[in-house]
Computed example of a mutant assay.
Amino acid sequence: MPSSEVSATDQWEIVVFLCTPAAYGCHKRGVTEKQKRALRMFLEGMPELSDVRFVDRAGAYGNFRQDFASNKTLLKAVWAKDLPESFRLKVKQGADRDRVRIAAARRTGVDMAIDLAEIYDDPHRTSEWDASVFLCVEDSAMRPCLSGRGKANGAVVTPEERKAIVAAIKRTPAVESYVYEDQATAYRNFRELYADNEALIDATLLSDMPESYRLKLRSEADWNAVSRRLARLRGVSQVYNQRCMDAKLKLDVEYGRGDLPESKVCAPR
């Protein structure tokens, strides 16, 4: 690759979150000013880095409010003091990103270091569907499959439940289109997606794959309301909401707040 060409991976930063008293692994201690100075000096001395940028709580909070401007519930739940400080690192083209991340994570006063390239460039993360309605399988451990279904508790989705689920999907205005995915199709897609993980494929059986309905939703619709409504139907084990999952991921890897409850992260827009 020519030296002037920058790959997609090179565009992503490594985020180094600093300790707060609430951070797991920081032993209830926040980072000190002395530790921050030592860390900055260490990072600026790394030959693999082209830029080292410090983001204080005020800066993180300003970015947070822009990224989640449409989620009033989340904005009311998070303040500047709730967000950790961080260093944002730009890695030089061709440099060993793992070495940088590991070296930064081991420094005193650091909670964790995350390479955004590993997160956002991962093909396993994306989905062509906006929402997936997964159905109960035999011996499921999911709570919705174990109670509230009468004689069907703990059993595979029944024909009556399946009929009601399809009817609910069809009469939902937010649903633009949908397809049914049986176990065989799900298993084939799973094997193709994780073809590079032989151990995972060997440990997963066809019977482990749930049937599902894959939905395309209208962009202007309230995806969270749709997901909650469909998740309450008998025979549904869970509903995967892509927009909600993207928000949770962003909060975790870019703001260090993956601990926030889904009720706030995925609140109505």
Rank of each mutant, 00 (worst) to 15 (best):
L200W: 09
A155E: 12
Y255V: 02
E13N: 12
T20V: 08
D56Q: 03
T73K: 13
A174V: 01
R65N: 12
A8K: 11
L205W: 14
L233I: 09
V253P: 06
R37G: 14
A58G: 12
Q238Y: 11
R53H: 13
E198I: 00
L75Q: 14
T9G: 07
V110Y: 07
V78N: 03
A231D: 04
S207K: 14
Y255K: 01
F134D: 00
L251K: 06
P84V: 05
Y194K: 06
E33A: 12
R53Q: 14
D202T: 12
A60I: 03
R234K: 15
E85I: 10
N189K: 15
A221D: 00
A105N: 08
S50I: 08
G62V: 13
L146G: 03
Y213M: 03
P2L: 11
Q238F: 10
E128G: 05
R228E: 11
L49S: 10
P210Y: 01
A231P: 02
E48H: 07
T108P: 13
V55K: 12
E254C: 05
G45T: 01
T73M: 04
I169T: 03
R143D: 13
T204W: 00
V166C: 06
S3Q: 13
H124T: 10
R232D: 07
R243H: 09
A174M: 08
I14Y: 07
D130F: 02
V226N: 03
Y213R: 03
A195Q: 14
N189M: 10
V6P: 05
R97G: 05
M209H: 05
P173Y: 09
Q66D: 13
R269M: 11
Y178P: 05
F68M: 03
I165C: 06
A77H: 11
R269A: 13
D208W: 06
E5P: 03
Q183W: 12
I14S: 06
F87R: 05
R37A: 15
A95F: 10
V15M: 12
W79Y: 15
R243S: 08
T32D: 04
M46V: 10
N197W: 11
A77T: 05
K76V: 06
R101M: 08
W79Q: 15
V137A: 14
A131N: 01
R232K: 13
